[in-house]
Design a binder for these strands. Structure first.
Length: 245
DNA sequence: TCTCATGTTTAGGT
DNA sequence: GACCTAAACATGAG
């Protein structure tokens, strides 16, 4: 569930419930957070930043991060206990297997939306500058770096590197300016394709590289390797993806 | 039944 | 401090 576009879908599903300004009537769950802090509080807004789902209150913010296995149910439950359940008069939000944390500041003090690939405030120039400031970073690490591309994950990484024909082990500092511009532009662009396809339940069908055995351009086998600082799955074509090194 | 994976933090070592 | 590794968390698809 976790990449940025999926969190946007959650945010929009919750927005449709019109819970802004509504009071939380009951809180449950096996989360260790102070649940009394939430009860009878009025939710100001629901936001997302990268892979974070944010429940905003006047003076504090509840952050939900779904990690690898996180799930949610809106007006429904799983058989297993919820990590956190927020119950309103006419709706219920249930979160499972996720990381939950309360921050003692309003969301606008905690987050800079110019770094969120899905945000209206996304700033491509700032992302470009961040890339230029980290010349030793590998392309595969840059696309998982939440300080540069908040919301990008392993699927987006593999698809963007394939679309831009960049080998995952390329060094950011060795890429020509126009390729850096292309990475920034395509990360944003693919993320919105991801959103569209996820809503259509056709995301997997549209993968060109991620989990694929063969390059759709060259018809030669993809390489599958665990690359970068975090050793995440990378699928790439040694023929059409150029190694800048 | 078993392996693996859309992720991140933290603790420990060198 | 920089850099690396492993562990921890925990669900479901194939």
């Amino acid at each position: 569930m976790p990449e940025g576009p999926s969190i946007v879908i959650l945010r929009e599903e919750v927005a449709a419930l019109r819970l802004n300004g509504k009071e939380i009537l009951h809180v449950e769950g096996n989360s260790k957070i102070d649940k009394d802090r939430l009860i009878h509080q009025q939710v100001i807004d629901f936001k997302s930043w990268g892979k974070h789902f944010l429940v905003c209150f006047e003076n504090f913010t509840l952050r939900i991060h779904f990690m690898l296995f996180g799930l949610y149910k809106i007006d429904g439950r799983k058989d297993t206990p919820a990590r956190l359940s927020l119950q309103f008069a006419n709706a219920e939000l249930n979160f499972y297997s996720c990381s939950v944390k309360i921050f003692d500041q309003p969301a606008y003090e905690l987050y800079d939306w110019s770094g969120d690939i899905m945000s209206d405030d996304w700033n491509a120039e700032k992302a470009l500058k961040k890339l230029k400031d980290t010349p030793k970073m590998l392309a595969c690490d840059a696309l998982l770096n939440q300080d540069i591309f908040a919301g990008s994950g392993n699927i987006i990484k593999n698809e963007v590197l394939f679309r831009t024909r960049i080998h995952p082990l390329s060094q950011i500092g060795k890429l020509p300016q126009e390729k850096l511009v292309e990475i920034v532009k395509e990360t944003r662009n693919y993320s919105f394709d991801f959103l569209t396809w996820k809503l259509e339940f056709t995301l997997k069908k549209h993968w060109l590289a991620h989990t694929k055995k063969m390059c759709p351009r060259c018809r030669i086998p993809f390489i599958k390797e665990y690359l970068g600082k975090t050793k995440r799955r990378s699928y790439f074509c040694t023929n059409c993806q150029v190694l800048y090194f």
